[in-house]
Structure formats: structure tokens, C-alpha cells
Design a protein around this nucleic acid. Structure first.
Lengths: 333, 333
DNA sequence: GCAGCATTTGCACACGCTTGCAAAAAGCGC
DNA sequence: GCGCTTTTTGCAAGCGTGTGCAAATGCTGC
């Protein structure tokens, strides 16, 4: 390392002609300092370019101001949108985000949580994967807060934020039926995350209530290519589906592109499609996809207010509704 | 705050029946500990769920392991891809990423850098905006490393990583001319960042060498909608362009969608389009956009190796080439 | 000027860790 | 066993900050 030499409170104190405690107090809202000395301190700090050392402050206050965001596939539209909202709200709350990228294994989530502990993060938000119970217990025992987004599995202690995927899926069935569709299909990936599976199961259950069967096809990881592959499989069946619910907008985009360009199907005339997430691309005029919008802003707001509230925070479970935004990939509406 | 109570090295020492220094050394690679005690320590740590406090370690070692990533518009495809690569490489190098979201103002970049100083980040990587020189000087003086990506303005001290935008732009002109295009246009946003302007100017200059004029249209911020608006303006001219270089893939997507769906133009038969960035959507079969791929992996690797190399790091300037990936929005090739 | 009170200030300890230094232990050759 | 060298260990100081406590200062009303 090169010689590192940040200016410390001592130097500021010396320059301002006060004690070091005065400096500390000048930077602590509500501390007991006269306006006169506070000004002297602030000016000296300004001149020297002093910034409070948050490592040391965190050590003393036992509160680092750091919140870990644990997520895989950051570069995905929905994930990055959620990330944007979270960091934004965190910054507004005076916290700072530490970003940890995981692969799709649960092991890497465990490692990420350990990193969160090492930096004494005030809280961790888990957007992907599911950590071992022993690790989450360790976090909670250490007084670190935990937010699980769309992770389903309920344990007391953390804040759980989930969408009502089953209810959404049921609405899709209704819309398809109303559009006169009879051959329903569900396009999914093999990721098997709680929310994806809930959508699938909710869709099948609601269809059955209408006396309809559902063809399910799953492939790979939840992305554009998977959508194309699944389209390949679904659209070559003798009984070609006339309505497809895609577990994800990304899947839907791949699916629609394949349907149009390889199978020359027109949407929604010959094929209705609904997605989930309302990523930006869903509104592009090549897609105009009818889909459910994830309330990312609400999710972020709820998460941040919960994890930054003072006192001990009770574990809670929050279920939000996803709004169906109607565009043009489904007849009627 | 709830009662926070992380297990400390003392507790581990006590359980393992050794001194606190031994615990510290057991967690310091290359420190002087016998294998026997190290094992005792590691086991005790395991049992208690101990994790080294990196705030305290950072305080002592004068090296926090934190690297700040300063970026606006995280949710944008290119930015999030770069972010993914950076966090990935940082983690491989044993660092951890602190993510700071800025709006498009330079002021917010300054604030972000101050935050980086507060957490005593080992380095900061700036992906958007340009901080005041006084702040960057403060960073350097404090021994914090700085990486500026596509920020152009050269100052000694930081590592600068730039693309050869002008050269790329010249290649586009060549390709357009070879495709028989004569009415060239450039679609840009009003953001005016160095790389966007370099592409614009390089394009104009290269066209002039071929004796061709360029119509330039700029609108709003660099996104999909801007591309649509710019298309509106360019495609209603009496002399309709037959080749458009879009400063960004996102612009190109909006542009193409407008060209096709509102103006019923076919690409590349009636209109050639080239983008920049090679975002994922550029390869989607609705676009199949010919574009330049940003070497995000190389950028991330170079940045991380530079900022984590020991000794004092000389400021450097690195110029990379963007590869032209040929798809189907330009005739010939 | 003085007693009585509220406000401000500095001292010193604590936070959890690393590391130089000297003492203790271990290994080695005889 | 003894002197020697090498390895391991514990002590204690220090990193930069926050904060309780007691001393000091300022203010008020007489």
C-alpha cells in the first residue's frame, strides 16, 4: 500500500484550537457544543478536508451505517432496478450500501453474509438465494437485521417482503379465459426460486378451477435465451398453446421474439402472452408486453424504513400486490 | 438500535485457552503461529461464529478493503454489466464493493467521494460524472486510489481507462460508405459526457474526410425514449438519412423501434443503424444490432489489478479498443 | 460582587483489532 | 545436561473515534 494519510480529528482540533472531543461533538448532531466552537471546528475541518472516520465511529457507536445487499445476476433488468431503488433509499436514510455479488449457489450467500458480519453491517438485504439457517441465526444473534425479498421461507426475526404471486397468476388465467384462450401454457426456468414456483403453481391451480389444463415447460436460467428455447418446445407441439404466461419478462421477451420471428405468429391475435416484473424492455414498442409490475419502490421503502428504525425490530412478513399493467400482448382488456 | 453483540476475539481467545494476539495471528496469513494453536483458535472461532471485525482491522492496518463504486443510472444495461464485472473482480481480489448512486450532477459525485473518504475506502472507481479537482486531489493526498472510466479529462495520479471512441466512429463511417449510404446522421443525447461527444466528433470528422456531411440530433438523457424522439426528428426531414450512428445501444433500440413501427422503414434495406456498448438487448432477435462491444471484463480486470497492487501506484492512462460486432443492421459486412 | 444554575469543555477510557518487542518455549548438536 | 538458535507466545501500545464525568465557564438576578 502506498502511504495512506487521512487527516484526523486531532489535526482539526489543533488547528481550531480546541480539544479533540470538541471536534467529535461538532460532527455529532445534538451533542453539547457551543455554536462558536462548532463553527471554528467546521471551518478548520473544511480547510483540511477532514472527514469523520466511519470505521472508527462504527467501532465506537457499534453501528457502522453499512447495509449489505446480497444479490446474484446484478446485470439483469429487474435486479438492477431493485438495486437502484434500494441504494437510493438507503442513501436517503443516511446508510451506505455494500454490494455483494453471489453466484446462484446458496453457499455463496453464506459467504456473503459472513462478509456482512465482518464489516459489522447494520443489516443485510437478500435478493437472491437462501442462506443456511445457522448463518441467519448468527446474524440475528449478533443483532444484525435481515431482510429477505421474495425468498418466501418464513422464519421469525427477519423482515420478509413477498409478492402475492398466486393471486397474480390467478388473474392471468381470468384474463386468458376472457380473451377466449383455451390452450394454456406456462413458461418457466429451472431456477426453482420460491416466487417462480408460486407463479407456476398458482397458475396451474387457477386454470384447473376453470377446468383447463396447463402445459409447463422449463429451461435453464431465467433469461432471454431460455424464453426462446421454451418457445421452441411449446410452439412445436401438435396442440399449440394460444396463451402463455411467462414467469419473467425476460423469458417473455425471448418467447415473443421466437414466436414472431421463427414461428411467424402474431401477438396477440394468435397467441396471448403475459410476463412478470415490468422491466423497462416490456414497454418498448417491439414488445408492449402485458405484465405485472413489481412495486420496487415500495419494496425498497419498506425495507429501508424497517431496517433503519430504532429500537429492536420485530420480524415481520409483508405481502404486496403486483399491479397488472395492460399493454398489447393479450386480447381484450 | 437493538442490542448489538458480535462475538469478539477475546471470547475466542478465552475459549481456545490462548491470548488474544494468538487469535489475531491465526486470522492473519503469514503470521507467526504454530499450527497447533491456530487449529485450536479456528475451531473455537467456528463454534462461536466469530468473524474478524473489519472495521477495527481496517483501523489498525490502515487499509479497509473497501472500494467505492460511484455511478449514476445503475439500472441501465451497460452500467449494470460493468458493475457486475467490477464487483466480481473486486471480490476475487479480496476487496468489497461499496455502491454509491449519484444523480447526474457533479455535486453528487463530490458527495460520493467524501463518503468514500469517510469509510476510508482503499480506492474509488468513478463510472459517471466528474468530481471537482479539489476533491480528487484530497483523495490522492489521503492515499486513496482513483480510477476514472470513460471520463477522459486527464490528470496525473488516477488510472484513466478510456475507449478509442474516435477510432470506432471512423470505422462506422467506413462501414456506412461501403454499404452505399450517403446521408449520414448521428443520434445523441444531451448528456454531453466525454465519450458521447468523442463519438459524435469522431464521426463528423471521419465523414468530412469522405466528403460527407452529418446531421446531428440530440435529445434528453441517453435512453430508449430519447432514441424515439431523435428518430422522430431525423426521419421527418426532407432529406431522410439512410445511415444513423447512435451514440448508445439504448438510443439505437428506441431509434429502430420508431423507424420500424412509426415510419415503417426496414432495416438495413432502407436504413442502416449502428450502436455502441453491445448491451444484451442488442443481440435480441428484434434488434440484431451491429454495435461496438465495450470490453467490460478487461476494464474491470485492469481497474482491479491496478487498484489492488501494492506499493505506490503511478497514475496511468489506458486506451482500449472497442470491437465492432457485426449483426444485421447494416448492409454488407 | 456573589450565590446559584445551565451550558460548555477537556480528560480519560473504551471500542476490537494488529504488531513490535521481549520473554518463554522448543529444537538441535554435542 | 548445556549453550545455542529458531520458533512461538503474551504484553502493551496504538489506530481514530464517542461519551460519561467532573471541572470550568458563562449567565442570571440580586
Amino acid at each position: 500500500m502506498s502511504q495512506r494519510d487521512f487527516v484526523s480529528a486531532d489535526e482539526v482540533a489543533q488547528r481550531a484550537g480546541v480539544s479533540r472531543s470538541a471536534v467529535s461533538r461538532a460532527f455529532t448532531p445534538g451533542a453539547s457544543v457551543s455554536e462558536a466552537t462548532r463553527q471554528k471546528v467546521l471551518q478548520a475541518a473544511e480547510e483540511l478536508g477532514y472527514q469523520v472516520n466511519h470505521l472508527a465511529r462504527g467501532l465506537m457507536r457499534n453501528e457502522s451505517g453499512i447495509v449489505c445487499l446480497i444479490v446474484s445476476d446484478v446485470a439483469t433488468p429487474y435486479r438492477s432496478a431493485l438495486l437502484r431503488e434500494l441504494t437510493l433509499h438507503l442513501q436517503l436514510a443516511g446508510k451506505v450500501a455494500m454490494l455483494i455479488n453471489t453466484d446462484r449457489s446458496d453457499g455463496s450467500v453464506n459467504k456473503a453474509l459472513q462478509q456482512a458480519i465482518r464489516y459489522r453491517a447494520d443489516a443485510s438485504v437478500i435478493l437472491s438465494g437462501l442462506p443456511d439457517k445457522s448463518i441467519t441465526q448468527l446474524c440475528l444473534r449478533s443483532g444484525q437485521r435481515l431482510v429477505l425479498i421474495n425468498r418466501d421461507e418464513d422464519q421469525s426475526g427477519p423482515l420478509h417482503i413477498n409478492l402475492d404471486d398466486r393471486e397474480a397468476a390467478a388473474r392471468v388465467v381470468t384474463a386468458f379465459v376472457r380473451a377466449g384462450c383455451t390452450r394454456l401454457a406456462f413458461a418457466n426456468s429451472e431456477a426453482g426460486t420460491p416466487s417462480l414456483m408460486a407463479r407456476e403453481q398458482g397458475f396451474i391451480a387457477a386454470a384447473r378451477e376453470q377446468g383447463l389444463d396447463v402445459v409447463v415447460e422449463r429451461h435453464g436460467w431465467t433469461g432471454y435465451e431460455a424464453g426462446q428455447i421454451v418457445a421452441q418446445r411449446l410452439l412445436t407441439r401438435k396442440e399449440r398453446p394460444d396463451a402463455v404466461f411467462c414467469a419473467t419478462d425476460l423469458l417473455a421477451c425471448g418467447f415473443m421474439d421466437a414466436a414472431r420471428h421463427q414461428f411467424s405468429l402474431s401477438i396477440p391475435q394468435q397467441l396471448c402472452v403475459v410476463g412478470f416484473d415490468d422491466i423497462e424492455q416490456a414497454s418498448w414498442s417491439s414488445y408492449r408486453l402485458t405484465t405485472f409490475s413489481q412495486p420496487v419502490t415500495v419494496i425498497a421503502r419498506e425495507a429501508v424504513t424497517w431496517l433503519s428504525e430504532s429500537g429492536i425490530a420485530e420480524g415481520r412478513s409483508l405481502t404486496l400486490q403486483a399491479d397488472l399493467v395492460w399493454r398489447e400482448t393479450i386480447r381484450g382488456g
